[in-house]
Structure formats: structure tokens, C-alpha cells
Amino acid sequence: MKTETFNNLINESIEAVEKEVDYTSDVMKQIKNRKHDKAKRVFKKALMTAAILISCTTIVYAGVITLQKIELKNSEDEVVGTVEIVETDENHHLDSHISREELFRYGDKLHGSHEWENKSFIVIDTTIGYPMGMDLRPNSNHFFEYSEIEIDGDILILPEQLGGYQFSSISIHYDIEYPDEETVNAMIEENDEDRFIVNEIETGDIRGMSYHYNSIEGDLSMAIQLEIEDEPNFFRMFTSMFESYEVITVSDIDVFLTESNYMGVSYRSNKTVRLKGINHFETSWFESDHNMSVNVDPDLKSWNKGIEEEIDGEYIETTTYPENTKEQVINFTELLHEVFKTNE
């Protein structure tokens, strides 16, 4: 289909949903009544969160930010974590591409020291009109987004399942679609090897599986699911494993991929690789082995391969890996080793 035809079809379909609408009076009425409603809402949410919020102390720093310290209790009434919340102003805008180092610098700026680094932090960026946070404990630098956290006035609302020390297991939105657990089990039972490849992993107290999943469209989707012993969290993220252990030995894993926060690693080899201290590592795997892009955080070492370019509105792959797939794998392995070496 020609691009012009495609564009026309899309534009027509978008024009078709257009409708005379008038939300003005409804919206304005809500705005006028907002203060009253908000008071009720906050009270209700305060009740809901009473189980996990034990104290909430507000400290104002130089009028620039508001820092709130919240102790979290589990159902046994034990303090299991501390969260500090920073409300950013427009001069401290964060986005999901910020690196851990940048965030540390940001924290230093707020606190004038590095002491805060060992605390549990959630940075709330309100400039996007939506709460977005980050757990800054040394073993985690995850972004929290979307519906996982709600902020309303002085109340931080965590989903019940995230109460206590479960911050690191907050799910991060992936671009790729996982098959759910039921589907996975069904596929394993059916032994559908063409569409589903499972590699078991066992290293120290980490065990899990990596999956290759060929979607119906023929795209290769990849997922990793891991379990940490005594923490039966089946969908635990691979990246959290990175963050939780200083050195991890991973073997026989073909691909790890995360896209939403640009962390992840792609590796395709039977060799064992020791991975350490990866912060940002974007991989993309697009339909064939000959088109793989790798972007590594500049703080580590900059690599860009497999560039795709847009030419006349079309997506053209202008760079490919060497035709010899074996060579490609070797190069990629070397790249990984080189990157990791810089962190040892």
C-alpha cells in the first residue's frame, strides 16, 4: 500500500471520530467543586493507606521542594522501609531517560551531600502532570510510572501488594507483550518449540527462565522471567536482578530486553558472561539477526550499531551486521566484554 493511501485511510478514520462536543460546563463545574471533593477524597485515601503509612513528616527545603518522609509498615506492624518523596519543580524536570548518575547529582543538589544515596527515595515528577517516581536505593533505580503510584495532596498511595519492602518489585511497563503465565504453561505443555523456547537459569540463589516467544505476527518477542529463592515473584524483572547483585553470572541466555526505561542487555552466545554494573543498555531486536541495534549509556561506553533511518517517510534499515551471523555474535560478545570490563 502506498504511503499516501495509508495516510489517507488513517486521516479519514481519525476525522470520522470527530464529534461536536461540549464539556465546558461539566469541567468548570468540577473545577469549582474540586476543593470540596478533594477533601473527601483525601480523607478516604488516608483511611485506605492507614495500614501502610505510619507517619508522614513534611519538611520544606528552601521553598524549592517539599520532602516527605514516610515509614512503611507491613501487616505485622513492623517498619519495613522508608520512602522520601520529592516534589520537583519546573527547574528539576526528570524524564525517564535520566541516568542513575544524573539522578545522584540531582540528589546531591537537593541535599548538598551524598548521604541520601542509601535511602529509599521516590522522586515524584509532577511537571508531566502525572506522578512518576524512582526508587533510589543503592540496589535499585527503577522508575515507577502510571497507575502504580497515586499522589493526592500529602498522601502517597501504594497498591496494597506493594506495601512493605516490595518497591523493587513494582512492575515497569514493557513495550513487549508477555505471554501470561497461563499461556506460558500451556505452551510448555504443548511443547510448541517453534514458537516458544525456554532456557532454564540457575546461578546461586537466582533461578529462572528466559523465553523466546515468536508472536503471531512473526516478530520475535523476548521475555525473561526470574525467580529469586524465597521470593516467589514469578515476574521479577531481570533488571532488578542486576541491581540486587553486584556480579551476576548468567549463562545460556539469548536475549534480555527491556525497553521502557532503556535498561537491559542482549546476549546471544553459549558462553558464560559476567555482567556488572549495567545502567543503561538499550537493545532492539527487529525481526532478524541482521538488524540489531545496541546503545550503551555514554557513561559506560558509547556504541551504536544497526541504525535505522527514515527516508521519505519509510523506515529503511541502512546498516546491517555482517552477513556472517557467527561473526556478528562474536562481535557482540566482544562488545559486551569490553563494556563490562570498564566497570570491573
Binding site: 500500500m1 495509508f6 485511510l9 488513517i10 524524564d95 525517564s96 531517560h97 510510572e145 513495550d175 505476527e217 516478530d219 525497553e259 521502557s260 532503556y262 538499550e282 532492539s284 527487529f286 541495534s293 546503545n295 535505522e308 527514515e310 523506515y315
Partner: peptide
């Protein structure tokens, strides 16, 4: 959409391909 430009290019191309395939 809080995605990298390269990822968005891919998403767009995939959406386009998918649309054309289904439409046909």
C-alpha cells in the same frame, strides 16, 4: 509517549504493517 525516537520509529512501522495487513 516517553519512548525513544528509534523505538517509536519501530512502533510506527509495526503499526503500519499491522494495519495494512489486517485491512487487506
Amino acid at each position: 509517549m516517553k519512548n525513544s525516537e528509534s523505538l517509536l520509529r519501530k512502533k510506527y512501522e509495526r503499526a503500519k504493517k499491522k494495519f495494512v495487513k489486517i485491512y487487506k
